[in-house]
Each structure stands twice: as structure tokens, then as C-alpha cells.
Amino acid sequence: MGQIVVENLAKAFHIAERQAGLLGAIRGVVARKHREVRALDGVSFSLEAGELVGYIGPNGAGKSTTVKILSGILVPSAGRCEVIGRTPWKNRIEHVAHIGVVFGQRTQLWWDLPVIESFELLRDIYRVPQSDYIKHRDELIALLDLEKLLDSPVRQLSLGQRMRCDLAASLLHAPPILFLDEPTIGLDAVSKLAVRDFVKRLNRERGVTVILTTHDMDDIEALCTRVIVIGDGKILSDGTLADLRNRVTRERWLTVDLAEANGAIDDPDVTLIRREGQRVCMSFDPQRISPAALIGRITQKHAVHDLFVENPPIETIIAKLYAEGRG
């Protein structure tokens, strides 16, 4: 039995539809149309203790809804869910004492208070014994380099600093499970690295189970051994990252900034995706031609300002998964 078990989880929201225009608004006052949105439609998975799982999907796929159900905030319409043997929405208070949650788009710190006071309030709310609190707090301060931030009011922190403090805040009670909902959203490269590094250490060294939702494929690549892809409330794929890539697409993208204004690249091994002025974006299959060889060939034929190779964005992979599912 896994530490986290989810079976056939479903969640439907009833949304009042607003009709466009003045007439629509008036009509809406009298008779409101309701629409059912299925945020989750039969999601099942199971996690062992110590796993670090990436939970990805496009906006509105149901990622956050899943995390909110797992953390006891939302009640599902149907399905079963157990986290360390507890049903989150039934034993909410006991359940949340054993998990940590971070929502990247919001903060759990008190806006006008110095960070350390938020920590102390959380200590009281979670009833962490003082000696444990000091131990956890000092470890987190050292790991996340928070020393200089502790006395600043939260409103004065940058987003990256705030996220590091939020991470610490969610772990003061040393939970065995951590839910991270888009923890790197809006962060600069340095802060993203700091967050990734921390999450990795937390998982490897402490064995904390982590579920991470993100749009950032680099997060997934840096951290996760297992990836669950969700789209339209259904699980599209569940496995290792390599499996996912191999299953859906092996292609990589090469973007080249050409020196000439109207230069064209015709190479038998690439497919043009789009052009924006001097920038040309192409896809290629690294098993047919190695990136190094391809770059060599192109730079020989064309004057190139700059170029880079990347993995196709997650949206592309999802789109392919969809097409696969329908076709």
C-alpha cells in the first residue's frame, strides 16, 4: 500500500455562466445558466514514501485541484483518497498536521510581519515543541540561506526570497509529505535553481515525499524520476520522464538567430516550426542526427548570431499525448 493512494478521484465545479453584453448581464440576474466543469474525471495513482513525483499538465488540467484535494482543502465529488491512511477531507485537521503545502502563486506568510514572526505563529498553530522548532528552523535557515531575510517584513521580499521563506514555513513541523503547487512560477533562474536544489536535498536526504506541479519542464528534468501527466481531468501518462519522452516524442528544438534578414535553412534533418524575423525555430530527432553534428552543419552554411537547443515545451508534449489518445 502506498503512502498516498488516489482512486477514481473526481471533482466537478458548478459555474454560473455569465453571458456577454448588457442584455446578457440582465438575463443573468433573472435566470442563471450553470455549467458543470469536470476538473477531475477519474484520477488514480499511488505513491510510495520517498518518491518525488512531477505532476504536470496545461492550465486548467486539474493539477491544483488534485493538490487541493490531497491537502484537505477541497472535497471531491467522488472517489477515494488516502494519505498515510487518512482521508484528507474527513480527518482534515489531523491530516494537515502531517503534510506541508506551498502554493507558488500565494504566500502563507503574514504580509506586514517580519518573516520570523510568521514562523513563530506557525510553530504555535502546528504545536511544534520549542526544541524541535529551533532545530527545524535553524536547519531550514541554513539550507535556504534565510538568515538575512528573517527580520524583513514579507512585503519587502523579492519573489524568490519570499518563495524560499514559504518553503521553510511549510516545513517547520517536519512533515513527511510536501505538496508543491508551482513553486517556481515567476522566479528568476537563480531562485529556481535554489528551490530545485533544496527540494532535491529534502527528498534525497530526508526522504520527504514530494508532489510537484509545474509548467517548467526543467523543474521536472532536474528533480523528478516519475512524471504524471494530466489533461482535461484525466491521467494521460504515468511513468519515468524518459518513458514519457520516448513514448510521445524524441524530438528536440533548435532555435537559431541568423545574421541575414531573409536567410532560410533547408536541412534534410530538420522541420521548420516557426520563424520570427531572423529567429528560426526547428525540430529534429536527436537519434537521427546528433545535436552537435546538426549545429556544425548549420553554422557552416549560415552566419549565425546565436543558437540553442531545448526540449519541446510541455504543452507540445501534452498536445501530442492528446492527439495520440484521440487517434
Binding site: R92, I99, R106
Partner: peptide
């Protein structure tokens, strides 16, 4: 952010 309030024991 009310989500955080519900995530407290």
C-alpha cells in the same frame, strides 16, 4: 490564499 487557512491543523 484562503487555501492556506484550510491547510492548517
Amino acid at each position: 490564499s484562503v487555501a492556506y487557512e484550510l491547510a492548517r491543523p
